[in-house]
Design a binder for these strands. Sequence first.
DNA 1: CCGCATCCAACAGGATACTG
DNA 2: CAGTATCCTGTTGGATGCGG
Lengths: 122, 122
Amino acid sequence: MKPRHTHLPADCRAISDILARIGDKWSVLVVTRLGEKSLRFNEIKRSIGGISQRMLTLTLRGLERDGMVTRTVFPTIPPRVDYALTPLGRDLLAPVSALGDWALRNQAKIARAREEFDRQAA
Amino acid sequence: MKPRHTHLPADCRAISDILARIGDKWSVLVVTRLGEKSLRFNEIKRSIGGISQRMLTLTLRGLERDGMVTRTVFPTIPPRVDYALTPLGRDLLAPVSALGDWALRNQAKIARAREEFDRQAA
DNA sequence: CCGCATCCAACAGGATACTG
DNA sequence: CAGTATCCTGTTGGATGCGG
């Protein structure tokens, strides 16, 4: 896989913007959860564990705004809301998974580098 | 390119950690700059444009700590410091570029989704 | 069940001034 | 040139309580 990265500043900004969007604390976790199947609000919440209600709401809104996720409300009592990936969101899963695989393959190496660096600093 | 994403919470955390690391405001910009060739501190600064001295220092320290970047000091006057990617850093460039390409391909779609969403909200 | 509003602590990040 | 130190601001994100 050849990098072939663009050297144009404007393009790099675009990349940076997208990364900032999905690189926040929860988006990737949410998207990967929805990659399996569509889920209800509290299903996502329980599935992730550690995310506050507030942040899940905000994260889902952001993803919805960017066209990654659809929000379907069933006007029942109690209310039921389903979240699912759009084609765009599903499409995103591929490069994110690639990065995720890289992260898994190299996490030991990174951890060791950190220890070494911190040891030197002390 | 098949996703094959892991469904294990722990793995997803690792992915999330890495994304948080390189998903900050400047890391990707710096790494892609260094992907071309090794650069001096102010070369990076000028090349990016808009980054403060403070943030460039912090970003480079972070990347160095994680083993992505090497820092070479030439004890001359005036001092000269070269930054370069490690093999690990260069290796990271591939999946990041993949994500970058995705971002470029889909930025119009995302922009349109945003406009649509914001229009609805109003 | 879903989610909004409020409050608050922590942190990220810019501007500026100073050092070897 | 390549930082460090200080200050100050906006944003992020958790906790809690209320409402449809």
